[in-house]
Design a protein around this nucleic acid. Structure first.
Lengths: 142, 142
DNA sequence: AATACAATTGAAAATTTTTTTCAATAAGGA
DNA sequence: TCCTTATTGAAAAAAATTTTCAATTGTATT
């Protein structure tokens, strides 16, 4: 039971959601390895922790976790069907993804502020968020 | 026939692809308005230009255009099913997307180089690419 | 520990999105 | 115009996601 799991349980309870076996199983699957996984992959892995789990519940759980900021979609691989746990960063953060194994590293530094201010001035857009995904090959895959 | 369309035709021919009515129609649909569109939306709009068009061809054409760098997927909206034409930027560039109407502005300035160098050093990843999407509300939607 | 209630779940079915197959068509060079 | 081959549309298949609904389970309260 690491700090990630604790904060996850807390976050869920705070918001009035229940702590269920399927949700536990989904999170365990996502936490086990530092890689992003598709709902299908999560389903298979999580069933090792909770046999009765259904794929529908994986979808529902991912939607909930995403809403709560506990997981984040990874876009770079083929399609946009993978999810990664948000490990450390509470607020603004981004992902560094290995294109071979799907390993995900989080990072918080992001030197875009003044550039975004310029962009806002130039375009007249009211900029609200941004999403940055960096792709490369992790040490193991090089 | 603007410069975008010209460069598009050139790019296609250079690479040995044919200039067909369906492809023209898909591009016209994408160029007509500065917003991103789903394959389904493109299908409906493009059929006004070419009645016989099939949805399959829209998918195939988008895949081709994406490979050639003529269109780019937009991730931010619900799911990741929209595409936008690449208007000006030939090389490295990013998108500023309106969350309400889907309007897309391209921009080329991106002040991430030294940050990415640090990140590479720190993580040991060999960084290859990155994808930045900025979301806000365009002047018309504010 | 038992109860009650509502949130949550799994299975099945439905829907939506995307891909494959294949014969017919059409683009572009000869 | 003819030829060759890429490209297309339709239909079917596959994959991804959502909806429906009765059964189950978490948790707050006895």
């Amino acid at each position: 039971m690491n700090s990630l799991t604790e904060s996850w349980e807390g976050r869920l309870k705070e918001q009035g959601y229940r702590l269920t076996k399927p949700r536990r199983a989904v999170l365990e699957a996502l936490v086990a390895e530092p890689i992003c996984l598709t709902p299908e992959e999560i389903y298979h892995r999580a069933r090792k922790h909770y046999k009765k789990l259904g794929l529908v519940t994986v979808y529902r759980t991912l939607a909930l976790f995403e809403k709560l900021g506990l997981v984040q979609r990874v876009h770079v691989d083929t399609g946009c069907h993978s999810f990664a746990v948000v490990r450390f960063a509470e607020g603004h953060h981004h992902q560094l993804v290995c294109r071979d194994c799907g390993r995900v590293e989080e990072f918080t530094d992001c030197t875009l502020d003044s550039m975004l201010a310029d962009l806002q001035k130039r375009t007249g857009f009211a900029i609200e968020t941004h999403q940055l995904e960096v792709v490369g090959r992790c040490p193991d895959c090089q």
